[in-house]
Design a protein around this nucleic acid. Structure first.
Lengths: 337, 337
DNA sequence: GTGAAAGCGCTAACAA
DNA sequence: TTGTTAGCGCTTTCAC
């Protein structure tokens, strides 16, 4: 427990010979207070080392100027970049962010949401864990008018806002590109298809094959936990097949890169023997040789947009009835295909 | 402003026919309360959708179970990994984390620290901005017994704890390795040498040269902002020199990699024409061809250790008088040298 | 233009 | 084992 008592508005009031209410008003630039008084109080407060106590204020005002963020994990390029965008917008608008990781687990996501609720965050920014089945744990927030914005990994949810890219089209474009490069038998690597990002990419991938007269081979659809390790294993699997795929579309660059490294180790030439495409346009994609064909994903912009939208809902209660915002993606063709 | 009133312990008290204090105690498993009463109250509270209000509690208790984190930027592999470690330990111990970015600016760092102070965080975890000159802005926290732990980018500070690796030795080892591979004229790329991580690495680099009978060439010391862009520029500069260096030690892998990419574009062979070593052992270092020689930096462990140490100071007020913790690094030799 | 006073929800010293 | 009560520091309505 702290030993020193805080400097409060009462102390400032006493020292200035004014009342606490006047001090409180002066400090927040209330129009009813004389300019001169304001100045005096400001100076005195600064001199005394006064710092307003957010808890007392929050308790009174019932709002915290804090937004909660729940992400599956934060040690990926994508999330770090999104978070950076969120933090930038939040802090520019006087909001703080509390971050928690669900570690890709539904159960832990539930715990995170509850903790953040207890912290009385003004709103929530969420990207879903890999195995989250429903949105019940957000019900309480919603019923209390605490806005929730999902980004990247989202689910349908009345009253929430979803921020995404068009994963279906992006994947469709990738697959079409693969086909145009001569692939007739491409493989897909993705994560748990309960998540929109993976199911939509798989759907786009399949549809592109069908639209081009090819038959998707279910044996070439690999669902993994999207770890580098899993990618390496998949590379082994693939390179051991009698009838190898002639191309691979991995649902993120980290997976694509780990795959390429292992394929190279096994003397499979890229793109001659097997074309490889990724997703996200992570920096590593333009480092690996050959440079990786991928989809540019506006991660920073998504973070900023998510924060902006949340702030908007916070300020203009319900004015905004949008339910989905779709950000632009872009296919980037490089040497791996 | 929220419309719904919260469910409070008063509501639960009324509904249960007990007093608020009993409810409060039951909810926190106070030993003086009958087991049966506890159970009843718990059930009732859950049923009524009671969630304790942290603000009221914080206001009363004068502690928040929240730790503030200030980092230069959070969109790098290193920071994301450190943060992941911090979050893991914090949440496992019932603490939340509020994260803010100084954007490498002293001024903004100051603002971050003040905001976090206003939020009454229990303690602070900090990695310094590139141009921070002194630690005055931490003075107030320290005088209020709010513990501050610096990690990675630290400064001497009585009363604080610093968590680092031995940057001097690590750099010394890298330089010695470069020399053992035949380099006689290696270059150094680092950031602002006000920061220990860069000054120490430069110092170790120089000393290794001297100890091996070489003379450090000051024209081959490049101080940049450590952006990829700057690395590319440096590569151009270097490759345009009449008397090129025969090796480069970059103070992080991102810089080393951007450098290698540009050198390759200019047909400089690595390691034959120029050896390159980096720092951090970022994943990209084992993706680039040739794989990058680097120093393994225990980023995740550093995050966990930082959080753990802070919690320790929070719990055993001042018991721990350590002022510096040094984590182990490891030279990793690969094909780029 | 300024002040008095009530109350946000919770906790703990003290009383019973 | 449980209840009473007095704040934690701030904001704001109402009065002057």
């Amino acid at each position: 427990l702290k030993t020193h008592r805080e400097v409060t508005i009462y102390d400032v009031a006493e020292a200035s010979g004014l009342s606490p209410s006047t001090v409180s008003r002066a400090l927040k630039d209330h129009p009813h207070i004389k300019k001169d008084t304001k100045r005096k109080i400001r100076e005195l407060a600064a001199e005394m080392g006064y710092q307003r106590n957010k808890f007392a204020s929050n308790l009174r005002l019932r709002q915290t100027h804090t937004i909660g963020v729940v992400v599956p994990r934060l040690d990926s390029w994508f999330m770090a970049t999104v978070l950076s965008g969120i933090e930038k917008v939040a802090s520019a608008n006087g909001y703080g962010i509390i971050i928690s990781q669900s570690q890709e687990s539904w159960k832990k996501e539930l715990a995170c949401v509850n903790t953040l609720y207890n912290s009385r965050v003004d709103g929530l920014l969420v990207s879903l864990a890999s195995d989250t089945r429903d949105l019940e744990h957000y019900g309480r927030l919603l019923s209390k008018n605490i806005p929730v914005v999902f980004f990247d990994r989202v689910m349908e949810c009345s009253g929430c806002l979803n921020i995404v890219i068009d994963n279906y089209s992006a994947a469709y474009e990738v697959a079409r590109h693969l086909i145009s490069r001569g692939c007739r038998n491409p493989a897909f690597i993705g994560g748990n298809i309960m998540r929109n990002v993976y199911s939509e990419r798989l759907r786009g991938f399949r549809q592109a094959l069908i639209d081009n007269g090819l038959v998707p081979d279910e044996k070439l659809v690999f669902i993994t936990d999207m770890s580098s390790r899993a990618a390496t294993d998949t590379a082994r699997l693939i390179s051991g097949m009698k009838k190898k795929p002639d191309g691979v579309f991995a649902a993120n660059d980290t997976t694509a890169v780990a795959l390429m490294v292992e394929l190279a180790r096994r003397k499979i030439r890229i793109p001659e023997d097997m074309a490889v495409a990724g997703f996200n346009n992570e920096p590593v994609s333009s480092v690996i040789q050959p440079n990786l064909t991928t989809v540019d994903y506006p991660a920073g912009a998504m973070g900023e947009m998510a924060a902006l939208s949340l702030l908007d809902r916070l300020n203009n209660a319900q004015s905004n009835s949008l339910s989905t915002i779709v950000l632009k993606h872009k296919l980037i063709v490089r040497d791996s295909t």
